[in-house]
């Protein structure tokens, strides 16, 4: 009896393993586990056995059936897995084909530089002020201690629209406007970025249109040392933590004392190279304590108020930072240039 069952299982196993399709498997299932299977015949034989042997006999048959059923299930899983593998294989793609070409846009390098400088000053508590590009002689010059026929006006050859209207030559008129606007004469800490114009022929280092950013602090206690500290901080943020600064006397009608500010060369670290013309220093901006005449013209009592102003050319900063040797590149908009930043 047992031998018979074993033989049956072995024969089923061998047939199951040969199946390729689901239908074949179903046929085998019917053959071994269906109503006309040999197990049915064996069950018929069970009636002939003594009652005491029947349970054992039944158990053996059930176990054998279960085993065959397991074998079928197992084969079914194998077949399914093979099918999936086949499908996956057929779906494989060439992953080395190029992906979609997404366009990468770029902010203009001048915008990036301005935003960088703005963010430094915002961190120091400054707000950003803007003003018109067409200015009056009064705001662009007179209120800034540059009366008509002042020789320093020649430093800034201007584009005039009428006798009295011109394209601003610096963003300083925004300082004047902000001082006047500040009717309560509260402490003022502003930066003024913007487009300015000078009547220069365009060449490698000159542009009739360029951008400036100026900072102005006016209150009752801001000192020259504050200017120096602020300048060092800005220089380090812009050009690296190891930078030093150097102040040299200069002249601007709207500040006094006035200074030019040099930063230690970030290419050679001050040892001398072509970038710093072997001096170890690179001039980056002009600054000074606000001239009393400017404060008075804006209605501030110069015995009580004082402060500093500084101004830099964005192009110069960007050119230094990114090693650009021709200012015209900044306005040509060759996309091979613009997309580098």
């Amino acid at each position: 009896m047992e031998t018979k069952l074993k033989r049956l299982i072995l024969s089923a196993e061998s047939e199951i393993q040969k199946t390729k399709t689901n239908n074949e498997l179903l046929d085998i299932k019917a053959k071994y586990l269906g109503k006309k299977s040999e197990f049915n015949d064996l069950m018929q034989e069970m009636k002939n056995l003594p009652a005491s042997e029947r349970p054992l006999f039944g158990k053996l048959i059930n176990e054998a059936k279960q085993e065959i059923s397991n074998l079928i299930d197992k084969q079914k899983q194998i077949m399914e897995k093979a099918q999936i593998n086949q499908r996956l294989a057929s779906e494989a793609i060439d992953i080395t084909m190029p992906g979609r070409q997404f366009k990468i846009g770029h902010k203009h390098i001048l915008t990036k530089t301005i935003e960088e400088i703005e963010d430094i000053f915002i961190g120091l508590g400054y707000v950003i002020k803007e003003g018109p590009e067409i200015e009056t002689d009064k705001y662009n010059f007179e209120m800034l201690n540059l009366p008509k026929d002042h020789p320093a006006r020649e430093m800034q050859d201007s584009f005039y629209i009428t006798e009295d209207l011109l394209l601003r030559t610096h963003t300083s008129p925004v300082q004047v406007r902000s001082l006047l606007e500040n009717a309560q004469q509260l402490p003022l800490k502003i930066i003024c970025p913007g487009v300015v114009y000078r009547k220069d022929d365009d060449d490698q280092t000159h542009s009739h249109q360029f951008m400036q950013i100026e900072a102005l602090v006016v209150d009752e206690k801001t000192i020259l040392a504050d200017l120096k500290g602020t300048l060092l901080l800005v220089a380090k943020k812009l050009f690296g933590e190891n930078r030093e600064i150097r102040l040299r006397p200069s002249y601007f009608p709207f500040t006094e004392p006035s200074v030019e500010v040099d930063v230690s060369c970030f290419k050679c670290n001050g040892t001398g190279c072509s970038m710093c013309k072997n001096s170890g220093w690179i001039e980056i901006l002009g600054a000074g304590m606000v001239n009393n005449n400017v404060l008075e013209a804006c209605g501030y009592d110069s015995r009580k108020f004082q402060g500093f102003a500084l101004g830099m050319g964005i192009e110069r900063i960007a050119m230094l930072k990114y090693g650009i040797d021709d200012i015209r590149l900044l306005y040509t908009n060759d996309l091979r240039f613009n997309s580098q930043f």
């Binding site: 961190g123 120091l124 707000v127 800490k189 209150d219 020259l224 504050d226 120096k228 102040l247 200074v259």
Partner: peptide
């Protein structure tokens, strides 16, 4: 100018 010390304006203001 090298002798001038370094400081930052004292007046607290909010930037942004």
């Amino acid at each position: 100018y090298d002798k001038i010390p370094l400081s930052i304006p004292e007046t607290p203001t909010q930037g942004g």
